[in-house]
Design a protein around this nucleic acid. Structure first.
Lengths: 171, 171
DNA sequence: TGAAATCTCTACCGATTTGGTAGACAAATA
DNA sequence: TATTTGTCTACCAAATCGGTAGAGATTTCA
């Protein structure tokens, strides 16, 4: 079933972003417990444990153990971009390894055949994509979220108005 | 292993693009046989059969059976974009279903939680990505490929010069 | 010195997707 | 009718995705 389309952002990345938003919105004085983040953001607890460990390994969050322990952001929310999170959780963002900024490697089968012709196009597309992803920070998302909340109506009010909800549109 | 990175373009899409390039480069008078495309472009034959059927279902190629049969492009190479091929083979390009132009649907878990804040950013990134992918046609890829070929040195000569080949760069 | 609370680590698990392969079948052509 | 081509149904192994279980290590507090 080709078109069922969960899209390309993994569940894991969505959970990671939600967790980071939760941390960014907390006062930062007290660490947030895994259990509380999981509870408030609807994330499976054990899964979140693993995700936070990855984020910690990537230097995005820090943790404390024992009573009063928990997680905090390891740097200002302004310095964590969407691209940072995606790369840490799902690996390279580039569509082809030979076009990757951070994880460059030669395409295994690129020599002597037609793949090379694709490279340039994918490189441009990737660059355009990345510009947005690098420019968007957790802080910015946080602001957007609060905006939406106080203007109430929450998420649904912002759904693209020209998109039909029923079924798929193949045009 | 998060960074091993084959990238996001599936093998299947790469094969599809190679096959389309082969068809675009043939004179168009005689159909190309699956076997010949597979041979000249290093694509597993049986796998290519399935791919061509999908492209046919999508109206990108046409076929003839029996002796002298084979495949041809169903429309001018100028009218087949990278985005067309990717969508036909791998489904929606959008990172989130609620941001998709062709396959819109509401995110399952978007109501009342933080996902909404992501939407806007991913929407912009996707739009930027799509602009390039829609603008790049098979004809253009074909031209690029020939350019590279006649300037000889083939692919490898075009590899990004500022990228080290050895190992991964984590910066 | 515990005991409790918290993060950490290793191991597993079922479902789905990816990248294929095998083989019978159908339609053209000569 | 024999041959040559595409078409269709069914598999298959390996990897990935989304998660779970449970023991272990640290810190704090009484």
């Amino acid at each position: 079933m080709v078109g069922s389309g969960d899209g390309v952002i993994s569940q894991k990345t969505k959970y990671a972003l939600r967790a980071l938003l939760a941390l960014a919105e907390s006062d930062g004085a007290h660490p947030l417990r895994i259990r509380d983040i999981a509870g408030s953001r609807a994330i499976p607890r054990k899964f979140l444990e693993a995700i936070l460990l990855e984020l910690k390994a990537g230097g995005l969050v820090a943790s404390f153990r024992g009573k009063n322990g928990g997680y905090v952001l390891a740097k200002p929310a302004e310095e964590i971009s969407l691209a940072d999170v995606m790369r840490r959780i799902d690996g390279p963002i580039a569509p082809l390894p030979c076009v990757s900024r951070r994880f460059y490697s030669r395409c295994a089968d690129c020599s002597g055949d037609a793949d090379c012709a694709f490279r340039d196009a994918f490189d441009q597309a990737h660059a355009a994509n990345l510009r947005v992803l690098e420019a968007t920070t957790i802080a910015r998302l946080c602001a957007l979220e609060n905006e939406a909340d106080t203007a109430q109506g929450r998420c649904d009010a912002k759904a693209a108005p020209d998109c039909q909800v029923s079924g798929k549109r193949l045009g």
